[in-house]
């Protein structure tokens, strides 16, 4: 069976993403990863917030939860905590995860709860037609930064790592063929995993910043991405405008629901 037939909802097509949008490519990587990781279909739950990327949950043929803006992670945490047998994957955007949902994001990292989070980073609020997000680079234009953005942006991978996430990786829509493997590793990590998937929003971000066609934007990803191994040999100056891709952090720490299970076992004298 085609992956699309198995994992996508035919009734929800066509999707609402613009021509040339990177989200479809990232969704495809997520689906390939779920298949490759061999996740049990019935035991996998997809949770999303609000925004273009968060529409992805509706397109996926699983138990799916399209929540409120920024809150996908606490909804997902409740699901995972109430039933730790479920595989929980959160699909979110740069604004959803890091502006309104920023507090939930760092606390999910800290807790190291076994959830895989894929951040569709298109550097803009697309659904509301192009306001700058906490991931919009300084100097770039958006409807709310008409004179160029002066608001510093996050490096979400550094943030995740320092807040306690145990697996952190970055990829781009251009690197679609290798993205699923990073997501598979994120899924297999017993703990909180973050994959930043850099994509393109030709409609709002690309047009306003004169970045050309979707193909030009994908080529930009290609030209600015540096694999983590290669990046180790470059100076900070050389890396200034680069995207370091690949597995950026992989560590182990106690996972939250397992710790709770151990607590229950201890209290009930089963340990």
């Amino acid at each position: 069976m085609m992956l699309a037939e198995k994992y996508l909802r035919d009734a929800m097509m066509p999707h609402m993403w613009c021509p040339g949008c990177g989200h479809g490519i990232i969704l495809q990587a997520v689906i390939r990863a779920i298949d490759k990781a061999g996740l049990e279909h019935d035991k996998t739950v997809i949770v999303s917030g609000i925004g273009c990327s968060s529409r992805a949950s509706g397109y996926m043929n699983f138990d799916t939860l399209h929540t409120t803006h920024g809150r996908a992670l606490p909804f997902a945490s409740g699901i995972k905590m109430a039933n730790p047998d479920l595989n929980v994957i959160v699909l979110t955007g740069d604004g959803d995860a890091l502006a309104i949902g920023g507090n939930h994001f760092i606390h999910a990292c800290r807790r190291n709860i076994d959830i895989t989070t894929v951040i569709f980073n298109n550097s803009i609020y697309g659904m509301t037609s192009g306001q700058y997000s906490p991931m919009t680079p300084v100097g770039q234009f958006a409807t709310t930064s008409p004179y160029g953005n002066i608001d510093r942006n996050f490096d979400v991978c550094e943030l995740a790592k320092s807040a306690g996430a145990t697996y952190v990786a970055r990829s781009t829509a251009y690197h679609a063929p290798s993205m699923p493997d990073l997501i598979v590793k994120a899924i297999n990590n017993k703990g909180f995993s973050v994959v930043e998937a850099v994509g393109q929003c030709p409609t709002y971000y690309g047009r306003r910043n004169k970045l050309g066609s979707p193909v030009d934007m994908l080529n930009w990803q290609k030209e600015h991405a540096v694999n983590v191994a290669a990046a180790a040999h470059l100076t900070p100056e050389q890396l200034a405008d680069k995207l370091i891709i690949g597995e950026l952090h992989n560590s182990s720490a106690p996972e939250f629901t397992e710790k709770y299970d151990q607590l229950v076992a201890r209290l009930q004298g089963r340990e």
């Binding site: 409120t68 809150r71 992670l73 606490p74 909804f75 409740g78 699901i79 995972k80 039933n83 479920l86």
Partner: peptide, 14 residues
């Protein structure tokens, strides 16, 4: 906010 969200998520698992 997170508390209310987590409660709804938990309820969805039955």
């Amino acid at each position: 906010i997170a508390s209310m969200a987590a409660v709804i998520g938990a309820s969805l698992t039955g």
